[in-house]
Nucleic acid binder design. Structure first.
Lengths: 154, 154
DNA sequence: TATTGTTATACTCTATAACTATA
DNA sequence: TATAGTTATAGAGTATAACAATA
């Protein structure tokens, strides 16, 4: 097979294209790292949020993560079915649930966060700690600037 | 509605999570900017590659963009159906097509690249030109380092 | 009237397997 | 045997509309 050199043209200088490729690369690594636990990135993010903020309802968690209420149902269903999270009735509002991790959920989350920290360390090894801090700032500035913080109805 | 402060926990320090949110934000802006032309980011990337490297076949373009051969068919179909790209027979291999932009395709691509340049300029206005250059380097380093350059069979 | 959770549904993206015609 | 293009298909992820229960 002949290795033709392909000119990526303006894509090479496009933050959008480069970021998409980098994000895919990172997610594939994380998905591999979480594969043994059979946890997807979205499930992980939900577990982190519930673990850090027990008692939030579904709409609050979904909005914080940029997930539609309707799509969050199957997500939390899957965690509950595996005994990792639970819906507790709330005293003040019988429409909503207070979300919590189970003990098993907290235990698995601890493991996953160690795995994630190792993954993050692998990136730091490649780009350096200072560049990581700068990268986080730039990503935050870009995400905050666009109009995509809105979720639903808004 | 009460604005509860939600602690994002380890997600706040996660390059993966932050990059995902930033990438979504950028793509939503680009999708909006390309909406009038009814062109999706993937279609745009194909047009850029064909415009820059006329004569490539489908497998080559697909591999360069990280798209499966099978999924590329509908993509190039859509461009051809709109008269933006065409499949030309090749002299040496009757299995494959030499891909080219039509005049209309090149003309639209010129417009889209102006739109993209404006979008890129909006980001630069927010983070600065030096930070943009650094960001591109970091994204490249991250994308190149992961094992996700492989496509198909590999 | 508005909100929470839910169902149904559709559309895009992505992944795999298998086929055909050519090489 | 291997490759280019193709089809069929299945699985994620995401979007909208509408409903019941509750506020």
């Amino acid at each position: 097979m002949e290795k033709r050199e392909i000119d990526m043209g303006s894509l090479d200088d496009s933050i959008g294209y480069r970021m998409r490729r980098a994000q895919i690369a990172i997610f594939q690594d994380i998905i591999s790292a979480f594969a043994e636990a059979d946890i997807r990135p979205a499930q992980f993010s939900v577990m982190v949020l519930i673990g850090q903020n027990p008692g939030l309802n579904q709409s609050e968690v979904a909005a914080a993560l940029g997930i539609k209420r309707a799509n969050f149902v199957a997500l939390i269903d899957s965690l509950e079915a595996r005994g990792l999270a639970k819906r507790e009735p709330t005293a003040t509002d019988r429409r909503s649930y207070a979300l919590q991790l189970t003990e098993a959920g907290q235990s698995l989350l601890d493991d996953l966060q160690r795995v994630q920290a190792e993954h993050e360390a692998r990136i730091v090894a490649r780009i350096g700690a200072e560049n990581r801090a700068m990268l986080l700032e730039l990503l935050e500035a870009i995400a905050a600037g666009s109009d995509s913080d809105q979720i639903e109805d808004a």
